[in-house]
């Protein structure tokens, strides 16, 4: 029998209390018991960045955290970005308008990485954007559309998005 623990985690502003197997990763906890499948799992060893989420406002790879470690913390996932069912986040709008995605697999990780980056660097250079997304792999776009989207989003967000 594997050990379980009771945890209380806030995800996108909503509090969840669950009993979890201590070896369950945070990524699998979000996708399985919570049904939040927006967070994608690519490599499951911290290389591809697809599972990037925010823990207390800081980006982290959710495949490299245990669910039990999130106890008492605030998690933000891609599901919480859009302000309403009708409206997208300005970063999401910029991705749509600049062809920042094709297959969409890396997109949740790209968005969560860039949300943190643009919060801390509201007026970045192209070079800074490229470094910021260096921990996120995309096999479709060649990154051009993603970089363009990030710079476009920065402008929209400075104007109050």
């Amino acid at each position: 029998m594997s050990e379980t623990r009771n945890i209380a985690v806030t995800v996108n502003g909503k509090r969840y209390e669950r009993s979890v197997d201590v070896r369950l990763t945070l990524a699998d906890f979000l996708r399985g018991p919570l049904g939040l499948t927006g967070t994608h799992l690519g490599c499951e060893h911290g290389v591809c960045g697809a599972c990037t989420i925010l823990v207390d406002g800081q980006s982290a790879r959710s495949c490299l955290m245990l669910a039990v470690q999130a106890n008492g913390h605030e998690i933000a996932t891609v599901e919480g970005l859009a302000p309403s069912a009708e409206r997208l986040h300005p970063l999401q709008e910029a991705f749509r308008d600049n062809h920042g995605l094709q297959c969409g697999f890396c997109t949740p990780g790209m968005l969560m990485t860039l949300v943190e980056f643009l919060r801390d660097h509201p007026n970045p250079t192209e070079g800074e954007v490229r470094v910021a997304i260096s921990g996120n792999l995309c096999r479709c776009t060649g990154y051009q559309g993603i970089v363009a989207a990030a710079l476009d989003a920065a402008g929209r967000m400075r104007k109050g998005g």
Partner: peptide, 9 residues
């Protein structure tokens, strides 16, 4: 050292 996401942890 790594990336923003890994340095955060």
């Amino acid at each position: 050292v790594g990336h923003r996401q890994t340095r955060n942890r």
